[in-house]
Design a protein around this nucleic acid. Sequence first.
DNA 1: TTCTTAAATTATAATCATTACATTATTGGA
DNA 2: TCCAATAATGTAATGATTATAATTTAAGAA
Lengths: 137, 137
Amino acid sequence: MGLDKYIEMLKTKGLKVTQHRLEIMKYLDNNRTHPTLDQVYLYMKEKFPSISKMTVYNVIDSLISSRIINSMRFVNSTELHVDFDNKTHFHFVCGKCGEIYDLDSDLDLQELLKKEGHEAEDYNVNIYGTCGKCAKK
Amino acid sequence: MGLDKYIEMLKTKGLKVTQHRLEIMKYLDNNRTHPTLDQVYLYMKEKFPSISKMTVYNVIDSLISSRIINSMRFVNSTELHVDFDNKTHFHFVCGKCGEIYDLDSDLDLQELLKKEGHEAEDYNVNIYGTCGKCAKK
DNA sequence: TTCTTAAATTATAATCATTACATTATTGGA
DNA sequence: TCCAATAATGTAATGATTATAATTTAAGAA
Ligand SMILES: [Mn+2]
Ligand SMILES: [Mn+2]
Ligand SMILES: [Zn+2]
Ligand SMILES: [Zn+2]
């Protein structure tokens, strides 16, 4: 059922292939809603009723460390959010409905950082405001 | 001792002027290190040994809500950080030493958001990597 | 295939940040 | 000075994350 893609990604990173990792990767790949760990856990519990929440923490942790997925925190939330899309893009968080929108960008950090001597590995751009839908109301 | 500036800011926003608010504002103005609430609390306890941590939460909350200060969260930290500088700028977080650097920017969000119909009120740009100092070692 | 070991999963407890709430004190205007 | 709204306090509760130790599993070697 098309898990080869995920198996390949794990092997490339030298991570062991487990059912939990594959299922979480598939879920995140098909649900680009920037879920919290708890949301991932609730989904996983449906499929694996005996799963431990710690497994979700561990899986997410290994996927982030190996750069398979991205993570972000927003000022209005106390939880870590994750995103299967690890191509750099911006996020817009609506303060009214809470929806998190993806925004494309062509921001070039390298030039900005070069003169400072810093080496960037990753970044988050979080924009807060009122989304188009909510603005109309 | 130059508190007029802060008194003025509070009055402009319709907030009551209290010793705690003034002291926290002065502290944040003079310490642009993006402290956590706990760091602000530890400082305040020196000056006001009987202060409640809740007061720090409340003060910070009112300063953020009135847009006098900015706040941000980083993926590697579970705590809210605050910044007296509310002019938009970027932050670079060094994964080695933990230092948070300010970076100037001329990012224009308006154009980016216009076509999506979103209305931005604020944003955070958090860049993660290794800072110049740590890179040399 | 079986053995071996490092890595992953689990369960539980502990810690840390934040929120809720009820009480008391203070600010700023009448 | 007096009053009402707001701020500060103390305590308890909640929620997210981390720590730890025991058990199970993945995957390579024999
Ligand atoms: Mn995204
Ligand atoms: Mn700053
Ligand atoms: Zn919205
Ligand atoms: Zn550094």
